[in-house]
Amino acid sequence: KSIMKVYCQICRKGDNEELLLLCDGCDKGCHTYCHRPKITTIPDGDWFCPACIAKA
């Protein structure tokens, strides 16, 4: 079994998992407080990182 360690693409830390959003496009993580602008609430439904939005 392989366990994927998810970490924030900005701060490179994997702590505060409850505030770590996973992109529905690329599965990369980003803390709500590292994202600019900050994300104050966990979004309902799908969330896409800035890189995936730029590709769309």
Rank of each mutant, 00 (worst) to 15 (best):
H35L: 14
G14I: 04
K5M: 09
C11D: 00
D15C: 07
C11E: 01
I39N: 13
D15M: 02
Y33M: 11
I42S: 10
I10D: 15
R12T: 11
Y7E: 12
G29R: 09
K1I: 04
C26S: 01
D27T: 09
E18F: 07
D44R: 09
M4Y: 04
G29I: 15
F48R: 13
C52H: 02
I10Y: 07
D24W: 09
L21N: 04
T40M: 12
L20R: 03
D44K: 04
F48W: 09
I10W: 11
C26M: 02
A54N: 07
I39P: 03
M4K: 07
D24Q: 15
G29W: 06
I53L: 14
K38R: 07
T32G: 07
D44M: 09
K38C: 07
G25F: 03
L22S: 13
E17N: 06
W47S: 06
L19S: 11
H35E: 05
D44T: 09
I10G: 06
F48G: 10
T32R: 09
I53A: 11
D46S: 12
Y7R: 06
E18M: 11
D27R: 07
G14L: 10
C26L: 01
D24L: 11
F48A: 13
Q9D: 14
T41L: 05
I39Y: 06
C52V: 00
Q9P: 13
T32M: 10
G29V: 13
C8W: 00
A54Y: 08
C8T: 00
N16P: 04
E18R: 10
S2V: 06
H31R: 01
K55V: 12
G45S: 12
K38P: 07
R12K: 14
D15G: 08
K28N: 11
R36W: 12
Y7L: 06
E18V: 04
Y33K: 07
K1T: 06
D46L: 04
S2Y: 02
N16F: 03
C11N: 00
E18P: 05
A56S: 03
D15R: 03
C8R: 00
W47N: 05
G29Y: 08
D15S: 10
I53C: 10
P50G: 04
C26D: 01
N16H: 13
L19K: 12
T40R: 11
D27F: 02
I42N: 04
S2H: 15
C52Y: 01
N16I: 08
H35Y: 05
A51Q: 05
C30H: 12
C26G: 01
P43K: 09
P37S: 05
H35V: 10
Q9T: 10
E17M: 10
Y7S: 11
C52E: 01
Y33E: 10
R12A: 13
S2F: 06
L20K: 06
I10F: 05
R36K: 05
K28T: 11
T40A: 06
E17K: 15
M4P: 05
E17G: 13
C49F: 00
M4C: 10
V6G: 11
K13F: 04
I42M: 14
K13Y: 03
L20Q: 03
I3D: 14
G14P: 11
L21A: 07
E18W: 03
D15E: 15
L22Q: 09
P43N: 04
K13S: 07
C26N: 01
C52S: 01
P37V: 04
C34S: 01
C23F: 02
D44G: 12
D46N: 12
F48K: 15
G25P: 02
C34T: 01
G45C: 04
C8K: 00
S2Q: 09
E17Q: 15
E17C: 13
P37R: 04
R12Q: 11
D27Y: 09
L20E: 03
D24C: 15
L20W: 02
G25E: 12
K1Y: 03
C11Y: 00
K1E: 11
